[in-house]
């Protein structure tokens, strides 16, 4: 089964219900999209992620009511360096969508989605702990896996696999 090439043209993907919904609300909220290997990724404007999540959660036709996961990818040394990745699931419609926010390398910060889904609490703490991305408005942003006194963020690409010795 040969791979179909990824579709990255927003115009071709504008029919997707989540994109229709987001652009109908605020045309500048969607900054890009990608359809690859049957999976939909939507790049969302950094400052609008919380409202975008609330909008998709409360959609009448296709509510993405379940936050499956929040994680991050470090594209060091490229800029914008961090991509925070949200995996949403619609339990009634059995559909998935991936939201992404790009963040710059110096003092990366994004609004927390904990007011929308309390489940984001541990996920965001883990991203903060291992990548050093700050989530503003998070109720308890402290390290979760590493010791409180740990220096550095181990999953960053400029952090050696063996650690600092």
């Amino acid at each position: 089964m040969p791979l179909a090439p990824a579709i990255t043209d927003l115009e071709q993907l504008k029919e997707h219900p989540a994109i229709v919904r987001l652009r109908g609300w605020n045309p500048s909220s969607v900054v890009g999209a990608k359809f690859d290997r049957d999976e939909m990724s939507i790049y969302v404007e950094r400052s609008l992620i919380r409202e975008a999540c609330a909008l998709l959660r409360d959609d009448a036709k296709c509510p993405f009511n379940y936050l499956a996961d929040v994680t991050c990818v470090d594209w060091y040394p490229a800029e914008p360096r961090f991509e925070v990745v949200y995996h949403l699931l619609s339990i009634p419609n059995k559909e998935r969508v991936r939201l992404k926010v790009r963040l710059s390398g110096d003092s990366p910060a994004v609004e927390s989605v904990t007011p929308i889904w309390p489940s984001a609490n541990f996920f965001e703490r883990e991203v903060y702990d291992l990548f050093g991305v700050r989530f503003t408005g998070h109720p308890y942003l402290r390290r979760i896996q590493m010791p409180e006194t740990w220096e550095g963020h181990p999953l960053r690409k400029d952090y050696p696999v063996e650690g600092y010795r």
Binding site: A68, V73, H87
Partner: peptide, 30 residues
């Protein structure tokens, strides 16, 4: 490319998010 694969583990939704940059080692596995 990137893939999020979820399966029903005995405990619930287990998901692997694998990002590839085209090399022989995964760029990110979550």
């Amino acid at each position: 490319g990137e893939v999020y694969q979820a399966v029903e583990s005995p405990r619930g939704e287990m998901g692997y998010y694998v990002v590839s940059d085209g090399t022989a080692k995964p760029y990110r596995v979550h």
